[in-house]
Amino acid sequence: MDRPAPSSTVRRYMAYLSTLGTTQLHLRNPFVIAWWSMAYPGLGHLLLSKYLRGFLLFNWEVFLNYKAHINLGILYSFTGRFEMAKNALDITWVMLYAPTYLFAVWDSYRTTVDLNLQYILASREDAEVKMFNINSIEINYLDKRTPWIALAWSALMPGLGQIYIHRIPSAFFSMGWFIVMAYLSKLLPALHYTLLGHFELAKSVVDAHWLLNIPCIYVWCMYEAYVNTVENNKLFDWEQSKFLKKNYQYKYFKMPFVR
């Protein structure tokens, strides 16, 4: 249907358009992906469209960071309050943190390298991709969209840029977690007081632990929307060019010069 039939000779193909979105192989810089995993475990995997791994690692991070008070430890350490940092960290949880954190970074790096190889092989195989998917609940198709518009919508509300380019799993993820974290961190009251110039009030109302989660997720949403718009556009060009070569290069076309 949307994928090459099991009986076909195609081994690798570089994109799949499903109801939930366009999943695509493309070249990625492994250091950039690893860096996003360092910023927040799971985000690197989500950029690779490896949603299940990404959600697992992300939710693990949310839970363990909360239980072990990692963010408070970071906050107090960076501001020179080392005794408070020591007291903040919860020893029942903190040692569980490091292995999975490092795994997330390492695994996203090596997965990127592997997927880059898969991409190169898939692009050499150059198999066709179905560019249109319609069913009873959604329509997904390749189209040209503007990267900066995707970024701008995600800047206004994380997840909207993802909806614009039809990436439903990451749209759910971004909107859901951003709303939860904005609520728990009291981001908006703090923003309100900051804009009114009541800085002390803003500081006292905000929840430090949850607030420190926000920068990574917020910026990531803009980045993800932008990057995927660019790549979807490239996929569109590639698919259309393939279609034209196949259908509009008739062997006996009367060329305007004598052979």
Partner: peptide
């Protein structure tokens, strides 16, 4: 965001 907690303008700004 971190140093905002000890600076005047707060973490948001």
């Amino acid at each position: 965001g971190i140093y905002g907690f000890i600076l005047k303008w707060g973490p948001v700004l």
